[in-house]
Computed example of a mutant assay.
Amino acid sequence: MLLMDDIIRDGHPTLRMVAEEVAMPPSEEDKQILISLLEYVKNSQNPEIASQHGLRAGIGLAAPQINVSKRMIAVHLQDDKGNLFSYALFNPKIVSHSVEQAYLSSGEGCLSVDEAFPGYVPRYARVTVKGYDVNGEEVKLRLKGLPSICFQHEIDHLNGIMFYDHINKKDPLKPIEGAIEIEK
C-alpha cells in the first residue's frame, strides 16, 4: 500500500523529467504500480483509511509523484452530475481538445506540493484522452469539467510540468477571459 511518505515533494528532480512510455503489454511490476496509484487515490478519499494511514486526500496521482518516471496515472473522482471517473491508465495522451478553456474557481492543488499556490490554472474545457488500462486494453475517454482538468493535471506530471507553471505570474487571480469557471 502506498503511503503519503511514498509521494515525492516539489523540488525533487523526477517531477521535472519527461516520463518514459510503458511497453505494452505491461509487465507485472508495471501493473502493480498502476494498481497501487489508483488504490492510493481511493484510500485517500476514505476518511477512515486516510486518518489511519495519514493520507492526504487526492483525486489523481501520477507515477512520477512516487519517483517512478513512467507514463502512468490514476484518477478517481465524481463529476458535477455524480458520475464516477475511476481510471488507471498507461501512456495516457490528449488526442484532441476544445479551443474553449476552463479553470477551477478554487485553484488547483497537488499531493507533491505542500504549499498553496493561489491562482487560476487555465486548462482545456474538454479533452479526449486515449490510454491503456491495467490489462493493456485501449481506453478512449471524452472528458469535460473536473474530470477533464484532473486528467490534464496528471498528464502534465508525465511531461515534467507542475500546475503552478500555468498560473499567470503577474496577476494569478485574474479571471481567464472566455473560460468556464468550475466549482470543485
Score class of each variant (00 low, 15 high):
residue 112 S to N: 01
residue 166 H to Q: 03
residue 40 Y to S: 06
residue 71 R to I: 05
residue 154 E to N: 03
residue 153 H to N: 02
residue 156 D to A: 03
residue 106 S to P: 07
residue 10 D to S: 13
residue 81 K to Q: 13
residue 40 Y to R: 14
residue 23 A to W: 01
residue 32 Q to S: 10
residue 152 Q to V: 04
residue 72 M to I: 08
residue 130 K to C: 11
residue 116 A to Y: 06
residue 25 P to H: 07
residue 172 P to N: 15
residue 86 S to T: 08
residue 56 R to G: 14
residue 24 M to W: 00
residue 80 D to R: 13
residue 10 D to W: 12
residue 90 F to W: 03
residue 121 V to T: 09
residue 147 P to F: 10
residue 2 L to C: 04
residue 182 I to H: 01
residue 35 I to T: 12
residue 85 F to S: 13
residue 89 L to Q: 11
residue 24 M to R: 06
residue 37 L to A: 05
residue 130 K to R: 14
residue 110 C to M: 10
residue 32 Q to I: 12
residue 175 P to W: 11
residue 47 P to G: 08
residue 138 E to W: 00
residue 61 L to A: 09
residue 18 V to E: 07
residue 51 S to Y: 06
residue 20 E to P: 00
residue 151 F to I: 10
residue 110 C to L: 02
residue 70 K to H: 03
residue 139 V to C: 10
residue 182 I to G: 02
residue 98 S to V: 07
residue 36 S to E: 11
residue 37 L to C: 06
residue 88 A to W: 08
residue 136 G to D: 01
residue 127 V to Y: 03
residue 27 S to T: 13
residue 65 Q to D: 05
residue 158 L to W: 04
residue 30 D to L: 11
residue 37 L to E: 08
residue 25 P to F: 02
residue 50 A to D: 13
residue 65 Q to E: 11
residue 82 G to M: 13
residue 69 S to A: 15
residue 166 H to V: 11
residue 18 V to R: 14
residue 141 L to K: 09
residue 138 E to K: 01
residue 94 I to P: 05
residue 174 K to G: 06
residue 20 E to L: 10
residue 28 E to Q: 13
residue 116 A to N: 13
residue 110 C to G: 11
residue 69 S to G: 12
residue 4 M to P: 00
residue 88 A to V: 03
residue 124 Y to S: 07
residue 15 L to M: 09
residue 83 N to M: 09
residue 110 C to H: 10
residue 7 I to P: 02
residue 182 I to D: 10
residue 115 E to G: 03
residue 84 L to R: 04
residue 95 V to N: 01
residue 8 I to N: 05
residue 122 P to S: 05
residue 12 H to G: 09
residue 97 H to L: 10
residue 109 G to M: 08
residue 105 S to R: 14
residue 44 S to N: 03
residue 30 D to V: 01
residue 184 K to E: 13
residue 31 K to V: 02
residue 73 I to N: 08
residue 83 N to P: 00
residue 58 G to S: 15
residue 14 T to F: 09
residue 153 H to A: 07
residue 160 G to V: 07
residue 36 S to R: 14
residue 37 L to I: 06
residue 95 V to S: 06
residue 8 I to C: 11
residue 166 H to T: 10
residue 25 P to M: 01
residue 82 G to S: 12
residue 144 K to E: 14
